[in-house]
Structures are given as structure tokens and as C-alpha cells.
């Protein structure tokens, strides 16, 4: 039978183990071994961005990463890791209020990319938002309401002045 290797991943703050073949993508392992189905697979060649997760806070394509190769201690954040007990984050709420999603398939990747952008650049202007999201394809919205939503979420990412 096919040989598997036991790996440990730090996902959304939890240490999880899985038995994987070396060739299994991080996206497939998150989805099919760990049950984190919010990470979506759209192209398996790193173009569409649906499978975007955060590695140590930075967006990455989980379809182009072998789960076995994720280094120890790298913090993986999936869309499930964005969720808070009290409900949606201000970014998620803004996306809803601005109708920044239709079919919702690209949405988890959009949310994570936009979250990483605003964490880094809470003042990102429309041009920067569009540029940062340009690696996340959406076929439904024409992007405008996504961009509006991300812009509207900026205040939530501004650091309070001491």
C-alpha cells in the first residue's frame, strides 16, 4: 500500500496531526484530512487564489505547498481560524454589508488576503487593495463591492494611538 508520513501542523492555533503522502497538497490535507473545508481549491496551479491560507500571517497558495514540507512551527491560518465566538469580524461584516460576495467560493481566500493586507497596511488605498487582491480571482462580483468592503474595514485595523 501507499506509504504515509505522520506530520504535525499548527493550524489556527491548534497542533493537529495527519498521516499524509508526501505528494498531498496542504489544501487537500486541510480539507480532506483535517476537515477544514473552508479552504477551497479552484485551479491547483496557484492562479485563482481560492486556496489561499496565511502562513505566519502572510498569504500563500495551499495548492502549491506539500503539507509534508510545511516547516515546524509555521502558523497556518485558514478561514476557520478567522472566526470569533462573538460572530463575524469587522472585515467579514463589511463584506456582507457591501455585498462583497455572491457565490462565495473565492470568499475565504479573499477574506484572508484582505485581512493580511489590512494587518500590514491599514491605510491601503483603492489601488493597493486592488493590487493585493489581484491574485484572488472572483468571477461573480466584478470586485467593486469587495474593494469597497475592504476599504470600509480599514478603521478596524488601525492601531489605537497610545
Amino acid at each position: 500500500m501507499v506509504e504515509t508520513t505522520r506530520i504535525e501542523l499548527l493550524v489556527n492555533g491548534e497542533r493537529l496531526t495527519a498521516d499524509v503522502e508526501p505528494r498531498w497538497s496542504l489544501a487537500d490535507v486541510l480539507r480532506h484530512q483535517l476537515g477544514l473545508l473552508g479552504t477551497h481549491v479552484g485551479c491547483e496551479q496557484g492562479v485563482c487564489g481560492a486556496c489561499t491560507v496565511l502562513l505566519n500571517g502572510e498569504p500563500a497558495r495551499s495548492c502549491l505547498i506539500f503539507a509534508v514540507a510545511v516547516a515546524d512551527g509555521v502558523a497556518i491560518t485558514t478561514i476557520e481560524g478567522m472566526n470569533r465566538a462573538e460572530g463575524m469580524t469587522p472585515l467579514q461584516t463589511a463584506l456582507r454589508e457591501h455585498h462583497g460576495l455572491q457565490c462565495g467560493f473565492c470568499t475565504p481566500g479573499m477574506v484572508l488576503t484582505a485581512h493580511a493586507l489590512l494587518t500590514r497596511e491599514p491605510e491601503a488605498d483603492e489601488g493597493r487593495i486592488r493590487e493585493a487582491l489581484s491574485g484572488n480571482l472572483c468571477r461573480c462580483t466584478g470586485y467593486q463591492f469587495i474593494v469597497d468592503a475592504v476599504a470600509a474595514a480599514r478603521p478596524a485595523y488601525r492601531k489605537e494611538e497610545p
Partner: peptide, 12 residues
């Protein structure tokens, strides 16, 4: 606002 959105936004 759409009733569909929360489940889509949270990966559920």
C-alpha cells in the same frame, strides 16, 4: 444584506 453571507464568509 444577504442571508447567505455569514456561512460563506466564515467557511461554513
Amino acid at each position: 444584506a444577504r442571508v447567505e453571507d455569514p456561512r460563506l464568509l466564515t467557511g461554513q
